[in-house]
Simulated assay, not measured.
Amino acid sequence: MVDQMWAGVRERVGVLGGTVGFFGAATHGFRLDPVLAPAEVEALEARLGTTLPDEYRSFLLQVGAGGAGPCHGVYPVHRTGDGWAWSGDGADLADLDRIAEAFPTTGPDPEALAVLVAQRPDEESFEGEDEYDTAMEEWDDRVGELLWAADRTVGAIVICHIGCGQREWLIASGPERGRIWSDNRVDDLDLAPLLDPDGRPVTFARWYLDWLDKAEQHLRQQAG
């Protein structure tokens, strides 16, 4: 069933090559990287110490190793001199040595985060720019310790860049395995599961195929 969901998807993406004015198209150009061979996926999983979520695994084998997709595209995964890596803005935030660990579904205490956000330095309350910059650096360090701790994103892979430092992650291990989580920590918000209009968690396939449907609809509207 998982294998069948990707039937014809690579060809559908190819048809969209001339689409303009669709968010992210200027970045990925509706181009897909070549698919990975089964032996390559197995080597990647050996590097991670765990199997990839089924929908994403079959995507790599049948659609592509990355490229055209939601927002600015699906981050490609490829061999490197050290083994394997995903490439893209912030892809290195994922600790590939800890992908097999369960992704934590809860982050910092919301009340503690709210208090810290409320304490953000107000530039107008400082006499000089140097004093304000120092206060902001100290505040950023405190936010970093709370929101950007390495343990916060174990078991997950950065899969896509939305823009302005916002990203989306594919959860690879733990109870949220196979689902997409949004990362708005740049706006002082914790990671949160991506939900559909009915409040249901969005899996990798749903995330990708919904994007493809919207892109095709945009192309039809362009054609009149």
Rank of each mutant, 00 (worst) to 15 (best):
V63T: 06
G18T: 11
P121M: 12
P110M: 08
Y56Q: 14
Q62I: 02
E45K: 03
Q217H: 12
G224V: 06
Q166T: 04
P175A: 11
A149C: 13
H161S: 15
G73C: 07
G21F: 08
G163F: 05
L52N: 13
D190H: 05
I99F: 04
S58V: 14
G67D: 15
L212V: 11
A112T: 09
V13E: 08
T153C: 14
L219S: 15
T51F: 06
E124R: 15
L61W: 07
C160I: 00
R220L: 14
H78F: 04
D210Y: 04
L48Q: 12
P34V: 04
G128Q: 11
G107V: 02
R177D: 07
Y75N: 14
D190K: 01
W148Y: 10
D82S: 15
C71T: 00
A68E: 07
F204D: 09
I159P: 01
E127Q: 06
L93F: 07
A94K: 00
P175Q: 08
D3S: 12
G73I: 02
A46C: 09
R120H: 13
W169F: 09
D33W: 04
G107T: 03
D188E: 10
R220C: 06
V41E: 10
D92P: 00
G18K: 13
F23R: 11
A149H: 11
A156E: 02
Y132Q: 02
L170P: 00
W6M: 02
A39K: 14
D97V: 00
D33Y: 06
D210G: 08
E216A: 02
A65E: 14
L194Y: 12
E55T: 02
K214M: 13
P53G: 12
L146T: 01
L147Q: 08
N184Y: 12
E123Q: 13
F22K: 06
R98Q: 08
T50E: 11
L194D: 08
D151S: 15
W86P: 00
R179L: 15
R220D: 09
C71R: 09
P175I: 10
L194A: 13
A223H: 10
M136H: 03
D198I: 00
G81H: 11
V143L: 15
K214V: 03
A215E: 01
A114T: 08
R47M: 11
F22I: 01
A25C: 06
V117D: 12
F59E: 05
S173Y: 14
D196H: 05
L36M: 14
E123Y: 09
L212T: 11
L36A: 03
M1G: 11
R31M: 07
R98G: 00
E168V: 04
R10L: 06
V154K: 03
V41I: 14
I159D: 02
D97Q: 12
D97Y: 01
D190T: 09
D82G: 11
L209A: 05
E123N: 07
D109Q: 03
C164L: 07
D130T: 13
E124Q: 11
L48F: 14
L48T: 02
Y75F: 15
A94H: 02
E138K: 13
A150F: 02
R142W: 02
L36E: 06
R179G: 00
G199H: 03
E123R: 14
A118P: 00
P175K: 05
I99C: 06
G81L: 10
G8W: 12
H218N: 13
D210A: 12
F103Y: 15
R142T: 08
L170C: 04
Q4N: 14
H161W: 03
A7D: 12
L219Y: 03
E168G: 00
M1K: 04
